[in-house]
Computed example of a mutant assay.
Amino acid sequence: MSSPLALLLQRHSAPSRQLSEPAPDEATLHALLEAAIRVPDHGKLVPFRLILLRDKAKLHFGEQLTAMAIRRDPDLPESNREKERMRYTFAPLVIAVIARVDSNSKIPEIEQKLSAGCVAHNLLLGAYALGYGAQWLTGWAAYDRDVAALLGLAENEHVIGFVHLGTPLIDIPDRDRPVLTDLLSNWSP
């Protein structure tokens, strides 16, 4: 019998370039998203939301980001332009995880952002549990206010990350992991 912790001990990210069709069907995706939003949420603020990028919208998003990158750096090499343009097209589904920060709340901003981060992590865990691959990426687009405007975000909203989701094309080897004893200590007065 496998350990109840096997999912956590085996989960790993699949590089977005190694993700292809199929993505979860609509019913499976709905179930995954329902599970993903079951996160710690101090104050019950629901400080997150999700934006799905699919099909031609992914390429259009990449083309818009490329135009922004060129405006910032007209000498951007062609290879970088193509990388920006295609960045979101490999996985069949990209989920933008958005933090919605309520600055009038007594709940600290970091707790609200961590709650949204838990949604992204649950997407990774859920995708792995369902037999899919996923990768949580950020990059400059996650921190850029022009990109936030492109996504239709309000001033109090921030991209936590883009979760690329699909079926791995290859077996993904695990990476070296930290040694627990190097990270663990006991506090004593």
Rank of each mutant, 00 (worst) to 15 (best):
M1R: 07
M1K: 07
L9N: 13
L9H: 15
Q10I: 06
R11I: 14
S13W: 03
S13C: 13
S13R: 04
S16C: 10
S20E: 03
S20Y: 01
P22H: 12
P22I: 11
A23K: 11
P24E: 05
P24A: 08
D25H: 07
E26C: 07
E26G: 05
L32W: 01
L32Q: 01
L33V: 06
P40W: 06
H42R: 10
K44N: 15
F48A: 02
L50C: 04
I51K: 10
L52D: 00
D55S: 13
A57H: 09
H60I: 10
H60L: 14
Q64A: 15
T66L: 11
M68K: 07
I70D: 01
R72M: 08
D73K: 14
P74R: 08
L76P: 08
L76V: 10
E84L: 11
M86H: 06
A91Q: 09
A91C: 13
P92H: 14
P92Y: 12
L93A: 06
I98M: 03
V101N: 02
S105K: 09
K106H: 11
I107C: 08
I107D: 04
P108V: 11
K113V: 15
G117K: 09
C118I: 08
A120L: 11
H121N: 13
H121P: 02
L123D: 01
L125K: 02
A127P: 03
A127F: 06
Y128P: 00
Y128K: 05
Y128V: 10
A129K: 02
Y132F: 15
G133I: 03
W136M: 12
L137R: 10
T138Q: 11
A142D: 06
A142S: 13
A142K: 04
D144H: 04
R145V: 14
R145P: 09
A149T: 15
L151G: 08
N156F: 01
E157C: 06
H158S: 11
H158A: 07
G161F: 12
F162Q: 03
V163L: 07
L165N: 03
L165Y: 05
P168K: 01
P168N: 03
P168E: 01
I170C: 00
P173H: 03
P173N: 04
P173W: 01
D174C: 00
V179E: 12
V179H: 06
V179I: 14
D182E: 15
D182L: 08
N186R: 13
N186G: 09
S188C: 10
S188K: 12
S188G: 05
P189L: 14
